[in-house]
Amino acid sequence: MRFQDAARDARTVVYAGIQADPLVARAAEALAEATPAVLVLARAVMNGESDDEATWRAIFPTLLGPLADAPSRAAAEAALQPALAIAAKGAEARNQYRGAVVEELTARLLARRSGHVRRERRVLFDGVPAEIHPYDVTIEDDRRPEVYDCKWGARGIVDDVLHQLDDARAHAADEEVALPVALVVFDTARSCAVRLDRTYAPRAGTAIVPLERMRSLAATVPVPDDPAVGDA
């Protein structure tokens, strides 16, 4: 098993420009310490409707308004400005930017426990035709490699993505390599669970990391199981 840079075409060159935009880094940096509530705030703003700051301050009084405590307010304020800047972009660009933010956030969290984090990499196996689609984030540690794909919302959980992750895990196992694979979804566990109920793709060996668990990426390898939904 080995890793390789993805082939570059016009689309990937354009997307690489977005990934390299300092706005993406600023957004990811602000979200790396964020609570799930602040991540929901960022998701709401970047969903793209109002770009009026006052609207969001009114909608989130426990984070940005009179009911916020100081730590929550600081984290929410840091997240708000880059999210608004992304929300103000046109629909097509906004979709690409917010996807890039989820990838960058994932990479930054993983980098806290590994010095081998890479982006947009293919995984090659002996005797197996190479997948064209690269994985969003990889940890290329010879002793314990890991592979991640990232999605903005639960709707992005589709059979192709789950098959691709499971294929990587299974082919690695054929080479006697234990390869943790995970799908990071910037959406709530509840929405992910609903989406997963509708898929028949193999996922027993794939960890699903919803918004509530994102911070755990910095500390531990995610374990394959269905997203836990907290009780109301």
Partner: peptide, 8 residues
Amino acid sequence: RAIDWLST
């Protein structure tokens, strides 16, 4: 966009 908001 409405679907995005249904989960948010």
